[in-house]
């Protein structure tokens, strides 16, 4: 049903640390690996080994250069997936009821057997979190690994989204953002977590932790620069002979 719940019992979501993310794309690969064989149809690729490959992904990592007012540029790796918005515009536009937000944990899901593949939900999402699978013609999106997090067949340590379990830098955190005492809520509080494109009014559940300011000012970097000048001025032996011979030519 595409009516959004008044209030969800929990707000499960991710907290992504932009200070820690190293941009390795391991979360992208593990997400595709898990979700192409679990919930719903596989995440298909088109022309995967040809000249123009493309495919369906639920999580993608962008990289940005942020130019600071003091003239220093800073690189920020930026993983992006569904933010499981409280006021999810993708859900209400769905004509078939395939898109829905769960009352019990706030996860936004697609019932693929009801999806007609009209693509309107992808248009309604400001974040590019939904992609229409080109082979199956149904909408794919992050499920927060709903088939892992409640799965008693998995060891407890694995009952988190695949991206969180995989991240080698510990840049991704999973928990209940509706509970102010949860670890993720405390992390967001301590680090000043932010919403993406808040002016869209979607009230995202997922939060991003902004990169910490750099602790070294620009000038001090130059201290090492003289050491980088060429050191082998006086070549000897065979190389020296070659150098002289080439000079004479």
């Amino acid at each position: 049903m595409t009516l959004l719940p008044e209030k969800t019992d929990a707000k499960l979501g991710l907290v992504i640390d932009l200070d820690t993310c190293v941009g390795c794309h391991a979360c992208v690969v593990s997400c595709k690996g898990w979700n192409t064989q679990g919930y719903g149809v596989p995440l298909s690729d088109q022309d995967p080994y040809g000249g123009d490959p493309s495919g369906t992904f639920l999580n993608r990592v962008h990289a940005y250069e942020v130019m600071r007012p003091d003239g220093q540029a800073q690189t920020t790796h930026f993983p992006k997936s569904c933010l499981h918005c409280e006021d999810a515009p993708c859900v209400t536009v769905c004509p078939t009821g395939a898109s829905y937000k769960r009352q019990e944990d706030g996860i936004v899901l697609v019932n693929e057997s009801a999806c007609i593949g009209c693509g309107l939900c992808a248009w309604a999402c400001p974040y590019g979190a939904r992609e229409l699978d080109q082979a199956a013609g149904v909408m794919k999106k992050c499920t927060l690994c709903v088939d892992r997090i409640y799965n008693d067949n998995l060891p407890e340590v694995d009952r988190v989204p695949s991206c969180v379990r995989t991240c080698p830098a510990g840049a991704r955190h999973f928990g209940d953002l509706g509970d102010p005492d949860s670890d993720v809520s405390k992390l967001v509080e301590a680090r000043g977590g932010i919403d993406l494109m808040p002016e869209q009014g979607t009230k995202p559940v997922n939060k991003y932790l902004p990169p910490r300011p750099k602790d070294q000012p620009l000038e001090e970097i130059d201290i090492l620069a003289p050491l980088l000048e060429p050191v082998a001025e006086d070549a000897r032996g065979f190389i020296g002979w070659l150098d002289k011979a080439l000079e004479k030519l």
């Binding site: 992208v28 962008h62 940005y64 250069e65 130019m67 600071r68 992006k80 993406l196 990169p211």
Partner: peptide, 18 residues
């Protein structure tokens, strides 16, 4: 506003995700 990096500085795409 899209990246939330406005308080840090001016944002430019360095590398596309694909």
């Amino acid at each position: 506003t899209a990246t939330g990096l406005g308080p840090v500085g001016k944002v430019r795409l360095l590398e596309s995700p694909h």
